[in-house]
Design a protein around this nucleic acid. Structure first.
Lengths: 185, 185
DNA sequence: TCCGTATGGAACAAATATGTTCCGCGCTCC
DNA sequence: GGAGCGCGGAACATATTTGTTCCATACGGA
């Protein structure tokens, strides 16, 4: 469906996520490619950011579908989300943190659609009794997204290993930071 | 201790957090001030980003101190953190999301110090049995920070009211998104 | 080897961002 | 009203970024 297996686009997206507002030169360097080549691939900056935004959107869509977001029970969805948390976080870092990247009009609407899709999942999870119902469904979207970015940042900074990311995301997002069972004595 | 009551600095910081990599013109517009005036206050871009970074650092320090991060019991600290979550989130959005802003050398070290300080709190909370001990203390720093940013984004986008932010942050960060008591049956 | 192709560096023109100067406006205080 | 003051627009010079062209080189297949 989406041919997201373009290594150069992936590298540029990663570089851009780590350094929003980087110049073409910096992006080319970080992607390990000459500025000229980058330019052949993306005629101008707008084309580049648009391509990156499309990549992020299609990745998000892919992950959501792969996780059975639209029909699976919430616990199973979170289980699978955890496995895909790093790609998801990359996409969110690109789409959320920076307005300019989606300011291309129709893409902003697509992002909105994906957020709505996630919100519907949250509503379903709340109705099922799997997710807490005393918070707005939309807040669940934000919370999950930010936790995904948190693991991504933590991995990038070297504080947690990529494999650990999955566990931390699952534990923290669902159960929070409170000690599980043990109040004092 | 810190005279953070400079409205212009605050406005610029807010504008910058919402649009990393904005031009001087854009920042001036968003702060409701002429580019010339902005320039009188901050001779060049580096001075501006440095001032903003200092502001964010001092705000973080202020919030941490106000929350009794260094000595109060974890539940109380979270209670107070929730009350200051929006200023904290603004600071974190500036300090974390964008490398350029702390790339000024010594400021990066200061940020590191604040993160360490928070990590010590996490370790203490884990030892006390208030915070879960099966995750790295450093991860707690990232998780809390990202949740703070999440409420900030959600407020900014208009999905939650500023007053609601406090409650959402507290609930979600500590207890997660799982439904509290009600498994199936 | 020779050819076709893609890459990336160098050099350039154009656009944009930045830093600076000057001047007029409105405001306040006297 | 008049002097002093800070703000912000206009205009400018400089620096940086962007977009383009040309060419030398490296690689792979015929």
């Amino acid at each position: 469906m989406t041919q997201t297996d373009d290594p150069m686009l992936r590298d540029v997206a990663t570089a851009l996520a780590g350094n929003l507002g980087a110049s073409m030169q910096e992006l080319a360097d970080e992607a390990g490619v000459g500025r000229t080549t980058l330019h052949r691939r993306f005629p101008n900056r707008q084309a580049l950011t648009e391509a990156v935004a499309r990549y992020a959107l299609s990745e998000t869509d892919r992950v959501m579908t792969a996780c059975g977001l639209d029909d699976r029970p919430a616990p199973e969805v979170f289980e699978r989300l955890a496995q895909e948390v790093l790609p998801l976080a990359l996409a969110y870092a690109l789409l959320w943190a920076e307005p300019p990247i989606t300011e291309h009009g129709p893409l902003e609407a697509e992002l909105e659609l994906l957020d709505d899709r996630f919100e519907r999942f949250a509503v379903r999870g709340q109705a099922d009794g799997h997710l807490r119902a005393d918070v707005p469904a939309r807040w669940i979207v934000y919370s999950v997204g930010s936790q995904a970015m948190a693991v991504w940042w933590a991995v990038r900074a070297g504080f947690v290993g990529p494999r650990e990311a999955e566990r931390l995301f699952r534990l923290t997002t669902l159960d929070g930071l409170h000690a599980p069972a043990a109040p004092p004595a």
